[in-house]
Computed example of a mutant assay.
Amino acid sequence: MMGLVEGGKEKKMREIIEKCGGYAIIDGGFATELERHGADLKDPLWSAKCLITSPHLVRRVHLDYLDAGANIIITASYQATIQGFEAKGLSREEGEALLRRSVKLALEARDIYYERCTKDFSDFIRDQTYSKRPILIAASVGSYGAYLADGSEYRGDYGDAVTVETLKDFHRDRIKILADSGADLIAFETIPNLLEAKSNLMQAYAQVLEEEGIEIPAWFSFSCKDESNVVSGDSILDCASIADSSTQVVAVGVNCTAPRFIHGLISSIKKVTSKPVLVYPNSGETYIAESSRWVKSSGVDEEDFVSHIGKWRDAGASIFGGCCRTTPNTIRGITQAICQKPL
């Protein structure tokens, strides 16, 4: 963890990207894989439910993505909040323990993966030096809308009652617990509006990091509805500009956004920041909050998804992955496209 802090956070992130060959690969859809392995996620906690009921599946999905080539695995804490756990009847102490567990499971998966690699390559490394590929643990912090569990993170409408102080109070303890649990960085995901980006939550995040003395860096990724705007209709230029102004933020980008918008969004973000740009789109399907399901719209299959990677890289992105409805096959395809060799 300290390796990311000393000598400048953004510089260290760039060094890691260079060590990975000029790119880094994030994992893919987490809930999608949990459901494929038999998990029932029809619950306000969504994928965080498995931290309680089936932590072995969480570890297994992390390993699936490491096997597919990911160098960054995101914890199962996107919808994990102390408030959400308390609403399920758990104590505050139990909720805090589950947040720590989300990081612990990712750390365990990394250790297991490294151990497997050492065994698998034992003959190869007998006469050569084996270098482990860098693997980072990104502790996921979903937006306030994720906690509401009503699809708000896909619309960005929180109502007038939500203020910067509301958001700071909501996120402060969760951020501190995750940061103190051994994660390498904090991933603030699916940010849907300027409220969370410009005058309020973006600053709230940064203030919480600074007020609590948290040293590990963060990335900010926005959920967008087209090539120019986040889902609320606010400009991606404005949102990315605020992210660029924070010394705690080491990468800026978009997630849970249709693949057809990514190229334009990269171009927009590059206009206002020199920080590494990350992109991990969804499959292109549309989420219907009322029925908690995804429906075909302009969805693309995994082969089509992967075919865009070269264009996104040429546009200026250096960190790639997948979000909702993508799978280890998607990540394997991205890895092959980047490395230009079979995995």
Rank of each mutant, 00 (worst) to 15 (best):
residue 1 M to C: 02
residue 116 R to C: 00
residue 216 I to K: 10
residue 19 K to I: 01
residue 273 T to C: 04
residue 92 R to K: 15
residue 8 G to A: 06
residue 196 E to V: 03
residue 94 E to S: 06
residue 327 T to E: 01
residue 250 V to L: 02
residue 24 A to C: 11
residue 156 G to I: 09
residue 169 D to C: 05
residue 127 D to R: 13
residue 34 L to H: 05
residue 280 Y to H: 05
residue 330 T to Y: 07
residue 166 T to S: 04
residue 166 T to D: 11
residue 261 F to R: 00
residue 49 K to T: 11
residue 298 S to K: 10
residue 15 E to G: 03
residue 122 S to K: 14
residue 5 V to L: 04
residue 19 K to A: 11
residue 187 A to V: 04
residue 75 T to M: 00
residue 20 C to R: 12
residue 258 A to T: 05
residue 80 A to V: 05
residue 298 S to W: 08
residue 237 L to V: 13
residue 135 I to Q: 10
residue 164 V to P: 00
residue 257 T to K: 04
residue 3 G to I: 09
residue 269 I to Q: 06
residue 80 A to G: 03
residue 132 K to G: 00
residue 206 A to L: 01
residue 320 F to D: 00
residue 169 D to Y: 07
residue 236 I to G: 03
residue 62 H to E: 02
residue 9 K to E: 03
residue 98 L to K: 06
residue 187 A to Y: 03
residue 201 L to P: 00
residue 296 K to F: 11
residue 255 N to Q: 02
residue 38 G to H: 08
residue 190 T to H: 07
residue 178 L to P: 01
residue 164 V to T: 13
residue 281 P to E: 06
residue 151 G to N: 09
residue 88 K to P: 03
residue 258 A to V: 00
residue 252 V to R: 02
residue 296 K to I: 08
residue 97 A to Y: 01
residue 268 S to C: 09
residue 215 E to A: 10
residue 127 D to P: 00
residue 297 S to A: 13
residue 203 Q to V: 07
residue 176 K to C: 07
residue 310 G to K: 15
residue 16 I to P: 01
residue 220 F to Y: 10
residue 161 A to M: 08
residue 176 K to P: 01
residue 329 N to R: 12
residue 161 A to H: 15
residue 213 G to M: 08
residue 61 V to T: 14
residue 287 Y to A: 09
residue 244 D to Q: 14
residue 130 Y to R: 12
residue 225 K to P: 12
residue 100 R to N: 05
residue 194 L to N: 13
residue 340 Q to M: 12
residue 248 Q to N: 12
residue 215 E to Y: 00
residue 43 D to S: 14
residue 224 C to A: 12
residue 39 A to W: 14
residue 339 C to N: 14
residue 264 G to R: 14
residue 311 K to T: 13
residue 193 N to T: 15
residue 283 S to D: 07
residue 318 S to K: 11
residue 285 E to K: 10
residue 136 L to Y: 04
residue 86 E to I: 12
residue 324 C to T: 01
residue 323 C to W: 13
residue 15 E to S: 09
residue 41 L to T: 15
residue 59 R to I: 06
residue 78 Y to Q: 09
residue 31 A to Y: 09
residue 57 L to R: 08
residue 329 N to I: 07
residue 272 V to C: 05
residue 228 S to C: 06
residue 314 D to L: 07
residue 144 Y to N: 00
residue 325 R to K: 13
residue 236 I to M: 02
residue 56 H to E: 15
residue 244 D to Y: 10
residue 101 R to I: 03
residue 223 S to E: 06
residue 138 A to R: 01
residue 236 I to P: 03
residue 122 S to E: 13
residue 270 K to W: 11
residue 304 D to C: 14
residue 197 A to K: 03
residue 72 I to C: 05
residue 27 D to M: 04
residue 123 D to E: 14
residue 27 D to F: 01
residue 23 Y to V: 15
residue 330 T to G: 08
residue 13 M to K: 03
residue 246 S to C: 11
residue 1 M to I: 11
residue 134 P to Y: 08
residue 167 L to C: 09
residue 261 F to N: 12
residue 142 G to I: 08
residue 172 R to I: 01
residue 323 C to Q: 07
residue 116 R to Y: 13
residue 273 T to H: 07
residue 194 L to A: 14
residue 265 L to W: 11
residue 129 T to P: 02
residue 222 F to L: 10
residue 175 I to F: 14
residue 223 S to N: 05
residue 321 G to M: 04
residue 254 V to Y: 07
residue 319 I to L: 12
residue 99 L to A: 09
residue 163 T to C: 04
residue 195 L to H: 14
residue 180 D to Y: 07
